[in-house]
């Protein structure tokens, strides 16, 4: 991979730091009027998801990371690995470990496209679409006529996620949910 100098650090650039692939979030150029210039850089470790703050002398460089973000459809799990397939027509499949799947496990639905992050051709992260439609498999019975008032109750969705929903929602209904904050949006 190519090397990138601090002045090429832009949001989204993938670089290697301490052996892990990282995505640059922010790069602030810091310099006393006369004197050594530094770059204060925020990076997200793509393996752990943690945000690191590091300082570099301006002009230093980091090796680029062979990271690709691809759209893949969720197929199934064999209990140990979760299997995804590229949506580019190649039918190429990738097996994802639980560790890489992380919180996305509770948003999995077959035939939905997810963003899978590959590092050196290994899946290290899976991001769900911002909105997903899922069926309610368990919730307290809905209250008739109570469509406008506030109040909410927990509902378990087909993927395993538990979200707060309005009181009028019934078991068997399909809901639109925001995966970023886990909030109910509307009936689908």
């Amino acid at each position: 991979m190519a090397n990138y100098s601090t002045n090429e650090f832009k949001g989204g650039l993938k670089v290697m730091l301490d052996g892990d692939p990282c995505a640059i979030l922010e790069n602030e150029y810091v310099k006393p009027g006369k004197g050594q210039a530094f770059n204060r850089v925020k990076l997200r470790n793509l393996i752990s998801g943690r945000v690191w703050e590091r300082t570099f002398k301006s002009g230093e460089s980091l090796e680029g990371a062979d990271v690709l973000e691809l759209e893949m459809e969720y197929l199934y799990t064999d209990g140990e690995m979760w299997h995804f397939m590229k949506t580019d027509g190649s039918f190429e499949q990738y097996a994802v470990e639980k560790k890489a799947l992380g919180d996305t496990e509770k948003w999995l639905k077959e035939q939905v496209a997810y963003t899978v992050t590959l590092w050196n051709d290994n899946a290290i992260n899976v991001t769900p679409p911002n909105f997903i439609e899922l069926e309610v498999v368990e919730t307290d019975p809905g209250l008739k006529g109570d469509t406008a008032q506030g109040g909410s109750k927990p509902a378990t969705l087909s993927s395993g996620a538990v979200v707060r929903v309005p009181l009028f929602i019934n078991q068997g209904e399909v809901l639109k949910v925001d995966t970023r904050n886990g909030e109910y949006v509307s009936r689908a």
């Binding site: 810091v30 004197g35 050594q36 530094f38 703050e53 590091r54 300082t55 002398k57």
Partner: peptide
């Protein structure tokens, strides 16, 4: 403070970094 190696840094380089990151 900076999270980087300063083994070769001069006195002024160290002071610049501390001033920029910590004091400014």
């Amino acid at each position: 403070r900076g999270g980087l190696s300063m083994d070769e840094a001069s006195r002024d380089d160290c002071l610049d970094l501390l001033l920029s990151l910590e004091i400014e």
